[in-house]
């Protein structure tokens, strides 16, 4: 299991993460980021990409 945390003080809702893992990250109707706090281990590569492409470096993932 992978745990996902987004620092909402840093997040600027650019949605770049959504293009890497759209099953985990999405922008809601108001353009605000919503995300799943857990994902299965096979999502690691895409989640690492999401961490990399976040302009605010707001995403942290940890293996649980």
């Amino acid at each position: 299991m992978i745990k996902i945390h987004v620092d909402m003080d840093k997040c600027q809702h650019y949605g770049q993460c959504c293009f890497e893992a759209d099953d985990v990250f999405a922008l809601d109707d108001d353009g605000k980021l919503v995300y799943q706090e857990e994902a299965s281990d096979d999502r690691l590569a895409d989640l690492e990409s999401a961490v990399d492409v976040c302009p605010m470096q707001a995403i942290t993932i940890t293996s649980a």
Partner: peptide, 11 residues
């Protein structure tokens, strides 16, 4: 401009 969520289909 202030429509980030609407851009996904274009992308």
């Amino acid at each position: 401009i202030d429509r980030t969520a609407d851009l996904a289909p274009y992308r």
